[in-house]
Design a protein around this nucleic acid. Structure first.
Length: 505
RNA sequence: GCGCCAGUAGCUCAGCUGGAUAGAGCAACUGCCUUCUAAGCAGUCGGUCCGGGGUUCGAAUCCCUGCUGGCGCACCA
């Protein structure tokens, strides 16, 4: 206790204040510099965690509605991996469903080859929209579309080939976005991967008396669960077709057998809460033995600038690619202004990291359960509590270390630390591991954002009050050592948020 | 109607598994660049934590209730 604790004060209100000892702080910082740890430890029992996120739809552009799942899921994957868990990421893309009837019909009747060559996704969106609107007024057209869908489901070679082409094109588009964002998936097993398994799943649930027939559909009831007593789950429609409940159950079953995970995390918006409660409950009844921990990590709705729900069909969707472009452009303007003499290629590379980092940070900073209010200015802000602030703090450290002639970490003892700003910074630094544990526990990266902002803020304050390169003797060495240790944690933290760091800005 | 989620500074939001004087960014205002990156630092201003009960030594946080808003509720995902 004496090693860790310096003094214990009796504070007001029945509080005891334990002050961490300076010697403990010194040895912790020393261990960071020695590469022993980063003020955090690996989990004692690594778990296998499947993370299901992003899940865009084939034949549609990725838009702002996809960023939360994509960025949040990737961040969680990074953090789980870092703390020592084995992570499997799976992109459950929407590559099956009734929309393909209309798409196939549109493809065969009104596809514009030139427009398709120029921008395939846009053309697919156009034909879908046109057929969809026309089919609403024209029953014959509607049944023609249904016929195309049946053909596809029956394995018609022509329709299958077209369908496959639409998937390939879409995946190219997805991959472009993921490449820009530095996101990788271990698997992309879309809804269609489970087609063959659907009948078996439903039959098994019927056989086990978990599901029953009701009004021609196959349904699971939850009479004893308050929230779901009036909300049964349909797992097979009265026309014999399957829906997303059946697909999700088949997917879950597959993952259990294929990966044998300890935990599965689904990152989707909050509107699917009831759906996942149903799926998890059905699964609990179905696989009564020790199943994986199932967690629905949900996030709030995306609202427009006016605070009203941001509806997809209203036509005002912002494409994800456009958002990323705009972020890079805005960042580039500032980079040029701040660094007029910098090489243009370097300006662009820095602007890209800043712009994309700004988007990720803006997305991860709010509590995920809050509704998301989309605003260009907020999303792309480069001042205040933003990625730029963290990146800037990191470049200051990088700059100091670049200029630190004759500095060697093994000369650092931290014996000269005595300024309050130094101790404030050091005490903040050692909280990193605790924060990571909380993030993993609650799947809330905003805790990490807040921590890194506080760390950067303490660094900026220290930087203002304590000269580093100009300091003399031990103080110079120790302050450089402190900066280096902070830089190691700060840059690791940014990496865990999926934000690339820069040397200069 | 039933259920889920939310309501905190002018705006956008943290904080919510009970703890000290409720925090940050933006906006507004005041200082700080002949010293390491001012994309910064220091400060001022700004609060009925939606209302009302309750539990507790202690409630923004937990419970009940009311109001307001968002979302979901058999055959879209």
């Amino acid at each position: 206790m004496d090693d860790v604790c310096e003094q214990i004060d009796i504070a007001g209100g029945g509080f005891l204040n334990f002050r961490i000892s300076e010697s403990c702080l010194r040895s912790t910082l020393q261990a960071v510099l020695d590469g022993q740890h980063l003020c955090c430890s690996k989990v004692t029992q690594p778990r296998k965690v499947v993370i299901d996120f992003s899940s865009p739809n084939v034949a549609k552009s990725m838009h702002v509605g996809h960023i939360r799942s994509t960025i949040l899921g990737d961040c969680l994957a990074r953090i789980h991996r870092f703390v020592g868990n084995q992570v499997i990421t799976d992109n459950h893309i929407g590559d099956w469903g009734t929309q393909f009837g209309k798409l196939l019909h549109g493809w065969k009747s009104i596809l514009n080859a030139e427009a398709f060559a120029a921008n395939p996704i846009e053309e697919l969106e156009r034909i879908y929209k046109q057929v969809n609107e026309a089919a609403d007024k024209d029953p014959d057209l509607m049944s023609a579309c249904r016929q195309e869908l049946v053909q596809l489901q029956n394995g018609d070679p022509e329709n299958l080939a077209i369908w496959q082409q639409m998937i390939d094109i879409s995946r190219q588009q997805f991959d472009q976005i993921y490449r820009r964002l530095g996101i990788h998936f271990d698997h992309t097993l879309g809804e269609s991967s489970y087609n063959d398994a659907l009948p078996g799943v439903v039959e098994e649930l019927l056989k086990l008396n978990i599901a029953s027939e009701s009004d021609g559909a196959t349904v699971v009831f939850f009479p004893d669960i308050k929230e779901m007593a009036d909300h049964p789950a349909i797992i097979r429609k009265s026309d014999g077709g399957f829906n997303y409940a059946s697909t999700d159950l088949a997917t879950l079953d597959f993952r259990l057998r294929e990966f044998q995970p300890d935990q599965i995390i689904y990152v989707t918006d909050g509107r699917q809460q009831l759906h996942f409660k149903q799926i998890f409950e059905i699964f609990r009844r179905w696989k009564q033995s020790t199943g994986p921990q199932l967690e629905h990590v949900w996030f709030g709705a995306i609202l427009g600038d006016d605070g009203k729900p941001f509806k997809t069909r209203s036509g005002g969707t912002i494409k994800l690619a456009d958002l990323l472009n705009e972020a890079e452009e805005r960042a580039l303007a500032v980079v040029r202004e701040k660094n007029p003499d910098m090489d243009e290629a370097l300006q662009k590379s820095i602007a890209s990291k800043i712009g994309l980092g700004a988007i990720k940070y803006a997305d991860l900073l709010p509590n995920r359960n809050s509704d998301y209010r989309f605003s260009w200015d907020k999303m792309l802000a480069l001042q205040g509590n933003t990625a730029v602030y963290l990146l800037y703090a990191n470049t200051r450290i990088a700059s100091l270390l670049r200029k630190a002639d004759h500095y060697h970490p093994h000369n650092v003892t931290f014996q000269s630390l005595n300024h309050p700003a130094e101790w404030t910074l050091a005490r903040k630094l050692i909280n990193f591991g605790f924060i990571l544990e909380t993030v993993v526990e609650e799947s809330r990266p905003n805790y990490l954002c807040n921590y890194l902002y506080e760390l950067a803020s303490d660094l900026s304050s220290f930087y203002d009050q304590c000269p580093v390169l100009i300091a003399e003797g031990e103080s110079r060495v120790d302050r450089l050592g402190l900066c280096q240790a902070v830089g190691m944690v700060l840059s690791k933290g940014l990496e865990l948020l999926g934000i690339e760091t820069v040397e200069k800005m």
